[in-house]
Design a protein around this nucleic acid. Structure first.
Lengths: 128, 128
DNA sequence: GTAAAAATGCGAAGCGTTTCGTTGACATAT
DNA sequence: ATATGTCAACGAAACGCTTCGCATTTTTAC
């Protein structure tokens, strides 16, 4: 059972986000959603999604004429993967320094800070 | 005063890390350091560093025959930049969800968690 | 002084990502 | 049944990143 996560490129990640939020979708669905932000052609999105099938990032249902695509990996595991990658590349693998940098360089408001604090407490409890 | 941060590529980031930890260095210095991890040729590193000069990621002192390179941006601002980028691309711009994902998906030990907690407290104090 | 070693600069090739034009298959409406 | 529109498939081009070979210049060592 090789559960090796696959690194999505930037464009692929944008598509994955649509699939995560919308659930199984067609190429046109994704294009419509992406068009709100980026400006891409139909075949561009299609090609990317075909490549993603080849990579194993998505699966597709070809039973109908219009194929339906679905993300293979969970959003959470992809997020974890990308974080780990950045951690290794720019934070010497230290989770805490990444977290502290994230906290100090963004304007997380009071409510968010509280949320994180509560989360930390829960985490510490679980860890013993 | 255009303080637009420039996105370093992976290879460039690896070089930047050497420059941040060693301070101003020659191509050979960087190569020696990088060789411990990756396996690259001299001209490869050199070319990358030349491109970095062109991009404005590093400056170099050409007064001596052997040029000396120095990072332009601080490590902190580059880290912030990369975090912000990931935040936008994979966390809908939410700092707290990024932080919580980072915390739950890594094995930060007790000490690190304490450190973060203390940091949070300090941060909240400063914020008012 | 000459040979060897080291540094710079240039150009190009390989690769992955992104983009899109074109073609052919299929569906729908007239 | 024919015209119009939608879709999938393919190939190619453009771009950035990475790598390296080669030529040239400079330093060092004998």
């Amino acid at each position: 059972m090789s559960n090796t996560p696959i690194r999505p490129s930037d464009g692929e990640l944008a598509i994955l986000r649509v699939l995560w939020s919308r659930g199984p979708s067609t190429v046109r669905d994704v294009l419509t959603e992406l068009s709100k932000v980026r400006d891409m052609g139909y075949t561009t999105v299609m090609k990317l999604m075909q490549i993603m099938v080849a990579k194993g990032l998505v699966v597709r249902d070809e039973s109908a004429r219009t194929h339906i695509y679905q993300a293979v990996q969970e959003e959470e595991s992809t997020q974890s993967f990308l974080l780990k990658e950045l951690m290794d590349k720019a934070f010497e693998g230290s989770a805490s320094s990444l977290v502290m940098r994230a906290l100090s360089s963004t304007k997380a408001d009071e409510r968010e800070l509280d949320e994180i604090q509560a989360f930390l407490k829960r985490l510490k409890k679980e860890r013993r």
